[in-house]
Simulated assay, not measured.
Amino acid sequence: MRYDLIFITTALLCLLVGETLGIHMGISQDFTLVPAHVHLNLLGWVTLAAFGLMHRAYPALGASRMALVQCVLAIIANIAMPAGLALMLLSANHDPTLVKYASLAVILATVLFIIMFVRKVALAKAA
């Protein structure tokens, strides 16, 4: 599977949505969603693009049995976190439940990526 393309395509979509949200806030002069906008650009665009570029630089990462799980978890979590922030900021009760669980999932996806990198790249025997 081409994890590099999956991550980078998803990152580009996050960038587009983040930019659109930023433009909307600028036009409307309502900056309530700034934290969600920032997290979408940093988590969605930067983090997912970095994962994609790492997969491109080190194709052995895609051979890991964890690669699919890490990819799905990273994409869902890195989108759910800013979405949860937006819901929390817009709702009357400001429930942070989605933000909390998505944040933990972001960390788990990163830990899985680190494990994959160490096993498949850093500790790999030179051929």
Rank of each mutant, 00 (worst) to 15 (best):
L112C: 09
A50P: 04
T47D: 00
V17G: 03
G22E: 13
M25C: 09
F117I: 02
W45L: 10
P96C: 00
E19K: 14
W45D: 00
L104F: 11
L108D: 08
L98G: 01
S91Y: 11
H37Y: 04
G22I: 12
H94R: 15
H24G: 04
P96L: 00
N41T: 13
L21Y: 11
L104R: 05
M66P: 01
R119Q: 14
I79A: 04
M88C: 02
I75S: 06
F51C: 03
M116P: 08
A50T: 12
L43H: 04
G52I: 03
V99G: 02
S91N: 13
M54H: 07
M88F: 10
C14V: 06
I114K: 01
I76G: 06
P82D: 04
A80S: 10
C14L: 04
A36E: 00
A80N: 07
F117P: 03
V69L: 14
T110Y: 07
N78P: 03
L53N: 08
T20G: 13
I115K: 13
T110D: 00
L21R: 13
L68V: 14
Y58C: 10
A83Q: 01
G18N: 08
M88Q: 09
G22V: 07
T97E: 03
A63H: 15
L33F: 09
L90F: 07
E19W: 13
L87M: 13
F117D: 08
H37E: 03
S91W: 10
V72K: 08
P59S: 09
F31K: 03
V46S: 07
K100E: 07
S28A: 14
